[in-house]
């Protein structure tokens, strides 16, 4: 791999990310799957970095899961999105940031669709007025929350207590980065680093001391899909894709995986257990799996948050091997005491 070649591509795909003042919307599933990630995001941005990130309890799901499961039409999800934009406007914000990759993809798709078909935007305006008596303005700027952490990666590194370095060997941790499909594959120009060689997570890993692994199936989907997992008869193929990724990354002996999507960390984490049950195969050390993290969890770890405050006890694959390598202290007794 020629690193300079990647740098060239990364420099071609640098999007503008405003420094401050964002309207933040949560993901509907991340709060259950990775309960402290969003809380950590807000704590880091607001309290550690002193930025203005506003959220309101009045926002809802974007409808993305239903849209991708073909249970609601695009017009419905667009109207839901228009309502979120109306809330943003009401609270005086122009920069919109969402926690979920599928939301980010859907927002981008919506804004691009409206740009191509203004008559559709007019119809959604009418829908929103009829249903909610609200009017909306489009955001000036749309970001995914991982773009924000990417933007602040060096500020976080400056405050970091730990580095992604194996304290026993002194070598960087070997990190697999996995990007949610809807982050850049639909609109590569809206992503940091493009779709083939995304830089958004790689940049964080580099800034925090780790080493990025480029394995053959790096660009492959985690397999979640939507209907593909939600309907049991399709699950074998969802699982087979995750299996394919693990088989491909296995020779590189990764220490950990970082993701920026709601579904990917969940499936990369939970499917490892299912694969071990079905195939008797594990990919981590000593018969365990490879620990999987969200980027907020990793930001929290390097900044010295208590691992159990980051919700790492909710993972199927225990995070302890990674904590031990970095040298992050934790109380095993407190793991399940909240």
């Amino acid at each position: 791999m020629i690193y300079q070649g990647k740098q060239k591509i990364w420099s071609d795909y640098q999007k503008e990310i405003p420094d401050d003042h964002y309207f933040y919307v949560r993901s509907c599933i991340r709060q259950n799957l990775f309960p402290a990630s969003e809380k950590t995001f807000l704590d880091i941005t607001r309290n550690k970095l002193g930025k203005d990130f506003f959220e309101t309890e009045h926002h809802t799901t974007c409808g993305g899961i239903a849209y991708h499961c073909d249970t609601i039409p695009q017009e419905t999800s667009m109207t839901i999105i228009a309502r979120q934009f109306a809330l943003m406007q009401k609270y005086g914000y122009e920069n919109y940031v969402c926690s979920c990759i599928t939301s980010f993809g859907l927002y981008t798709e919506t804004l691009e669709t409206w740009r191509e078909f203004p008559e559709l935007e007019a119809r959604i305006k009418e829908n929103l007025w009829k249903t909610c008596k609200l009017e909306f303005a489009k955001p000036k700027y749309l970001a995914h929350a991982s773009d924000i952490i990417y933007k602040y990666r060096n500020l976080i590194a400056a405050q970091a207590k730990y580095k992604l370095i194996n304290r026993h060997t002194g070598k960087p941790l070997r990190v697999v980065e996995h990007i949610g499909c809807h982050y850049g594959k639909m609109f590569p120009s809206k992503s940091v680093g493009g779709a083939e060689y995304p830089y958004v997570l790689a940049g964080m890993i580099e800034a925090w001391g780790g080493e990025v692994i480029d394995y053959p199936e790096r660009r492959h989907c985690c397999g979640y899909g939507f209907r593909q997992y939600h309907i049991r008869s399709n699950r074998g193929y969802s699982l087979a894709n995750t299996y394919k990724k693990f088989e491909s990354m296995e020779p590189y002996k990764p220490d950990m995986i970082i993701t920026n999507c709601p579904g990917c960390p969940y499936f990369l984490d939970r499917w490892q257990y299912v694969i071990s049950e079905m195939e008797g195969k594990t990919y981590g050390e000593n018969g365990h799996g490879i620990p999987v993290f969200t980027y907020e969890e990793v930001a929290g770890l390097v900044m010295g948050y208590n691992p159990w405050d980051l919700g790492l006890q909710m993972h199927q694959i225990g995070p302890e091997p990674v904590l031990d390598k970095i040298g992050i202290p934790y109380d095993p007794q407190a793991k399940y005491l909240l």
Partner: peptide, 13 residues
């Protein structure tokens, strides 16, 4: 050829 990013010209030796 580097414009066809998926082929990795200039990235893969």
């Amino acid at each position: 050829a580097q414009k066809k990013e998926e082929y990795g010209y200039g990235i893969y030796e």
